[in-house]
Design a protein around this nucleic acid. Sequence first.
DNA 1: CCCACATGATACACAAAAGTATCACAAAAA
DNA 2: TTTTTGTGATACTTTTGTGTATCATGTGGG
Lengths: 192, 192
Amino acid sequence: MNKSTVSKENIRQKRTRDKVINLAMHALAKNPKASLNDIAEAAEVGRATLFRYFKSRKQLIHELVIEADNKLENATRPIVEKKLNARDTLEEFIKVLVPLGASFHFLNSEQLHSEGSGIDDLYSNQLMRLKELSIRLQAEKVVAANIPLAWIAVVLDNLIYAAWVTVLEGDIAPNDAPGLVLYSFLNGLSPH
Amino acid sequence: MNKSTVSKENIRQKRTRDKVINLAMHALAKNPKASLNDIAEAAEVGRATLFRYFKSRKQLIHELVIEADNKLENATRPIVEKKLNARDTLEEFIKVLVPLGASFHFLNSEQLHSEGSGIDDLYSNQLMRLKELSIRLQAEKVVAANIPLAWIAVVLDNLIYAAWVTVLEGDIAPNDAPGLVLYSFLNGLSPH
DNA sequence: CCCACATGATACACAAAAGTATCACAAAAA
DNA sequence: TTTTTGTGATACTTTTGTGTATCATGTGGG
C-alpha cells in the first residue's frame, strides 16, 4: 500500500463521509427523532456503512455537531477578520448564516437534550459569536441601548432560523431572505 | 358510590391528570425525544399511572396537543371577540401568548414529525390565527405592504417563542417580555 | 376505625432501535 | 483480467422503550 493508493482511497471514503454528514444533518434537523434507519436512508447509504464511519449513534451526533460548528466558524471567521463596523458585520453574518440554517439549527437544538458530550463548548462558541456581535452592535449604537443583550442575540438567532425555514418551505425567495432578516431586525415590520 | 364520592374522586383524578398534562408538555417541549420513563419522572408520577390515564404514548401526545390548542384558543378567543383594531389585537395576543410558550412551542414542534393523527387540523388552527392576524396587520397598515405574508407570521411566531425561552432562562423579566416582542416586531432593535 | 381506591413499584411480554458479523458484489487499482 | 477494497444486504444479538398485569401501600371519606 503506497502513498498514492492511500490518498485515492481516502478520496473515495471522504466523499461518502461528507455525503453522510451533510444529508444526516439535514435529516436530523428536520426530525430530531430520526432513527439510524431513517438517517441511513436519507444519507443514501446502507445502515452498515453508517456504523463503518461512526461507531455509535452518539459519535455520529458528536461529529455532526463538530462539523456544524466548523461550517459556522469557517463562514464567520473571514467576516470577523475584515474588521468592518458592527452594522456591516451584521449584514455579512446574516448573509452567510441564513443558508447555513441546517447547521445553525442543528447546533442549537442538539445541545438542549445533548446526546453526547463536549457539545456544550461548541455551542457556547456559536452563542459567543452572536453575543459578541450583539455587544458591538450596541456599543456602536446600531442597536438601542435599552435593549437587553440576551434579547438581541436571541432575536438574531431566531430571525436567521426563521428565514431558513421559510425559504425551505418555499414561501420566500432565497435571495430575499437575508435582506428581510436584516430589515426586520433593525427596523421591524411597520411602515416607515 | 354516591354523587359526592364520585365528584370528590373526580377532583383527585383531575388534579393528577392536569399535573401530568402540564409537566409532560413541559418535558416534551424541552426534549421531543423524551421516553415515557422520562415523562413519568418529569410529571412526578409512576409510569403505571401514565398508562392509567392514557392508553398509549400516541394518545398521550394527542391529548397534549388538544390541551395545548385549547389553552391557546381560550387565551386568544376573548381577544378576537373584543374586535379591537389590528394593532391592539396584536398587543393583546403577544401578552397572552408569551406565557403560553410551552403550549405554543409544543404544538409547533409536534406537527412536523407528527406522532399521531388529527394533529394537522389543530396545528392549522394555530397557524391560522397568526395568519389571520398578519393579514389584518397588513390591511390596516400596521405592517408594511411589501412584507411577505408568510414572513410576518413566522417572525411573530419566533419572537413569541424566543421571548418565552429567554424568560425561562432568566435573562429577561417576565413582565418585560411582551413589550420587547411588540417593540421588536414593529420597530426592530435600532434606535429611533 | 375501616373501606374504597388511586398510586407506585415491580415483574413481565413484546416491539423497535442500536449495534455486530458476515458475505456477495461492484468499482477502481494493479 | 485479477485483486483489492468500499459498499449494501442480510441475519443476528443486545439494549431500550412500550404496553400489560399484579400487588402492596397510603390516603381520604364514611
